[in-house]
Design a protein around this nucleic acid. Structure first.
Length: 554
DNA sequence: GCCGTTTTCGGCCCGACTGTTTTCAGTCG
C-alpha cells in the first residue's frame, strides 16, 4: 500500500466527516495527517511496523490506529460506516470552486444529489436555484466548474515527482554501477507529469529488477514488459526503467524523453527509426541537427529553429542573481528575515526582496504601513549581519477589486521594489479583470505583477484576461510579469510566458518562498521559462545588483 | 483528533469576499 493510498483514504474520510458537519478541527487533523504522509519519503508501512507513527507531527494515537487498520486490512471501518449514511461520491463535489462541505451536504439531503452527473443534470434543469442561498448564478458557476474538472486529468505535479525521480536515478546508478538518467515529461519539466521514466545503461532487465527491489522508495517491482521494467513508488507513481546498452544509450534518451511528436518528427527526418547513438548529441548530429534542450522538445517549432541555427540561448539556474518575491515570519512565512537572507546568500544570490503580504490579505497577517516600517528596521539590522547579499525592502501588495493598491502611495514610494498581486476576486468578468490588472500595471510604483492569473494547477482556473492588452500594458509601462515557481502555481504557465516574451514583456522568476527550503522551487520556474524559450536577458532577476537597482530607479 | 518552555484541557487561522438576500451563511485563502 503506497503512502498516497493511505493519505487518500484519510482525506476521503475527512471530507465525508466535514460534509456530515463534524467538528472542523477533527476534520483538519485528518487532513493534516494525510498531507504529512503524502510528503513522507519513507513508506508509512515501515514506520507502522516499528511503532513510530506517533513520532510524526500531526499523527497521534487515534490516527495511528486508523493507519494501522488501513495497512492491515486495506480498509477503514469508520469510513465504511460513514459511507452507509453519505455516498462516498459526494467528495468529488467538493472540488468544485465555490462549493464547500455545507452546500454539498444540502445538495444531497435536499435534492438527493450524490455525483457530478446528478449535479450537472439538476443545474441544467434549474433545480439548484430551489435551494435557499443558491441562484441562477450558482447554477452557472457549477456548470463551469464541472466543465473545468472534466478537462483536467489527474496527474502529479512536477514538484511532487522530480525530487523522487532524481533520488531513484541516483540510488539505481549506485546499485547498478551504471549511468541512470531521468527522462520523460519530468526531464522536459512539464508542469504536471504522469509517471517516472528512467533510462539505465545496462543490457539486462533482470539486474534492474533486482536493483529496484532494494530501493527504499520502491514498494513493488512488476513483471518486465519488452520495453521497460515497471515498478510502484511510495507516492503512488509508476516508475518505468528502460535498459539501454551503451551504444544505444543516447537513442533511448531521445526516444524516452519525448515528447512523442518531437520523436516522430525526428524519425521522419531519419526516414524510419532514430539513429543508434551512444549520446544524445550524436543522435541529433546523425540527423544533421544540434542538440535540442529537453524543455523545447514539444513540437512547438524547435526542429525548424534547430535546422536554421536559431535555437535560443536558454536561461539556466546559474543565471539567476536573486529572488524578488519571498515571505518571512512577518506575514505567513516560516523563516525569519535572517534565515531567509542566509539561505538566499548560500544559494549564491546577490539580492533578495522581502515581500511580505499587505494588510488586505488578513489571513496571512499582512502588514500595514506601521508594521512595514518596523520591518524595515529589522531588515536594516539583518543587512548588517549578512552583507554579502542586498536585502530589498519590498511588499506583495494586494490589488483590490477596482485595481487600486492596498497601501498608500507614500509608503510604496519608500519601498525598493513593489510586487502586486491578486488573491481574491479571481472570477471577475474578462473586461473588468483586464481593467483591474492594467490599472495595477500602470501604477507608477508597481514593478512586478506576481502570479498573474492566480491559478492552482488542476485545482482552480486563474483569472481571465484579454492577454494582448495585458501584455501591451506591461511592455509599455516597462513592468515585469512573474513566473511564480511554486509547484502548484507555475504562473505564468509556459505558453503564456512565451506569448509575453514574444510581446516584448520582461519576466521575473520568483520562488514566492515561505520558508528557506522553498528557494529550491526556483528550478521549476526556470524549467517553465525554458519551456517558454526564455533567454537570460529577458528575465529581470538575472541582472547584476547594480543593473537591477538602476532598473528599479528608472 | 492533536498538542504542550505558561496548558493533559482548551485551544486549534480568522477575516474578507461572494452571492444572494435584505442581514448573512458559506467559501476561501
Amino acid at each position: 500500500m503506497t503512502n498516497r493510498e493511505v493519505a487518500t483514504l484519510l482525506r476521503h474520510y475527512a471530507d465525508l466527516l466535514e460534509i456530515q458537519g463534524e467538528n472542523p478541527f477533527r476534520v483538519q487533523a485528518y487532513l493534516r495527517a494525510a498531507e504529512v504522509i503524502d510528503r513522507l519519503s519513507t513508506p508509512v508501512a515501515l514506520l507502522a511496523a516499528e511503532n513510530s507513527l506517533t513520532a510524526i507531527p500531526g499523527i497521534g494515537s487515534g490516527i495511528a490506529a486508523a493507519i494501522d487498520e488501513i495497512l492491515g486490512t486495506g480498509r477503514l471501518s469508520a469510513l465504511d460506516a460513514l459511507q452507509g449514511e453519505l455516498p462516498g461520491s459526494l467528495v468529488t463535489l467538493l472540488n468544485l470552486p465555490g462549493i464547500g462541505p455545507k452546500t454539498v451536504g444540502r445538495l444531497y439531503r435536499e435534492l438527493g444529489i450524490a455525483t457530478l452527473a446528478d449535479l450537472e443534470e439538476a443545474a441544467l434543469a434549474g433545480r439548484i436555484r430551489q435551494l435557499k442561498g443558491l441562484g441562477a448564478n450558482a447554477e452557472q458557476r457549477i456548470l463551469e466548474g464541472i466543465r473545468f474538472l472534466r478537462s483536467v486529468s489527474r496527474r502529479f505535479l512536477l514538484g511532487e515527482l522530480l525530487p523522487m525521480a532524481e533520488r531513484l536515478a541516483c540510488q539505481l546508478a549506485q546499485q547498478l554501477g551504471a549511468e541512470v538518467a531521468v527522462v520523460g515529461s519530468i526531464r522536459r519539466m512539464r508542469e504536471t507529469v504522469g509517471n517516472i521514466n528512467l533510462v539505465a545503461g545496462v543490457a539486462d532487465q533482470a539486474v534492474i529488477v533486482h536493483a529496484l527491489g532494494s530501493l527504499p522508495e520502491i514498494i513493488e517491482v512488476h513483471e518486465p514488459t519488452p520495453a521497460f521494467v515497471p515498478a510502484l513508488s511510495t507516492n503512488g507513481a509508476e516508475v518505468q526503467v528502460v535498459a539501454a546498452t551503451p551504444e544505444r544509450f543516447g537513442t533511448e534518451l531521445v526516444r524516452w524523453t519525448g515528447n512523442w511528436q518531437h520523436v516522430e518528427e525526428l524519425s521522419a527526418i531519419a526516414g524510419g527509426a532514430l539513429p543508434l547513438a551512444p549520446t544524445e548529441e550524436a543522435c541529433y548530429q546523425a540527423l544533421g541537427l544540434p542538440w535540442i534542450p529537453p524543455e523545447l522538445r514539444e513540437n512547438r517549432g524547435e526542429l525548424d529553429a534547430a535546422l536554421r541555427g536559431r535555437l535560443p540561448q536558454l536561461i539556466t539556474l546559474e543565471d539567476v542573481q536573486g529572488d524578488l518575491h519571498t515571505h518571512t515570519t512577518w506575514s505567513d512565512g516560516r523563516g525569519s528575515i535572517l534565515e531567509m537572507a542566509m539561505a538566499a546568500r548560500d544559494r549564491g544570490y546577490r539580492y533578495l526582496a522581502v515581500a511580505d503580504h499587505s494588510a488586505g490579505l488578513g489571513v496571512a497577517r499582512g502588514l500595514d504601513a506601521e508594521r512595514l516600517r518596523e520591518q524595515w528596521r529589522e531588515i536594516e539590522a539583518v543587512q548588517a549581519r549578512v552583507p554579502a547579499i542586498r536585502i530589498l525592502r519590498s511588499c506583495e501588495v494586494e490589488v483590490r477589486r477596482d485595481g487600486s493598491l492596498d497601501l498608500p502611495d507614500e509608503v510604496l514610494a519608500e519601498l525598493d521594489l513593489v510586487v502586486a498581486s491578486l488573491h481574491a476576486g479571481l472570477r471577475l468578468p474578462r473586461d473588468e479583470q483586464t481593467e483591474r490588472i492594467i490599472r495595477a500595471i500602470r501604477h507608477p510604483h508597481v514593478d512586478i505583477i506576481a502570479h498573474p492569473t492566480g491559478r492552482l494547477i488542476d485545482r482552480r482556473p486563474g483569472a481571465d484576461y484579454d492577454w494582448d492588452r495585458v501584455f501591451a500594458a506591461a511592455r509599455e509601462a516597462g513592468k515585469a510579469l512573474e513566473i511564480n515557481c511554486g509547484p502548484e502555481r507555475l504562473d505564468l504557465n509556459d505558453e503564456l510566458a512565451r506569448q509575453a516574451l514574444d510581446a516584448g514583456v520582461m519576466l521575473a522568476i520568483n520562488s514566492d518562498a515561505h520558508a528557506p527550503d522553498d528557494f529550491a522551487w526556483m528550478r521549476y520556474g526556470i524549467g517553465n521559462a525554458r519551456r517558454a524559450w526564455a533567454r537570460p536577458d529577458q528575465v529581470l532577476n538575472t541582472m547584476p545588483l547594480e543593473a537591477l537597482l538602476s532598473w528599479l530607479a528608472r
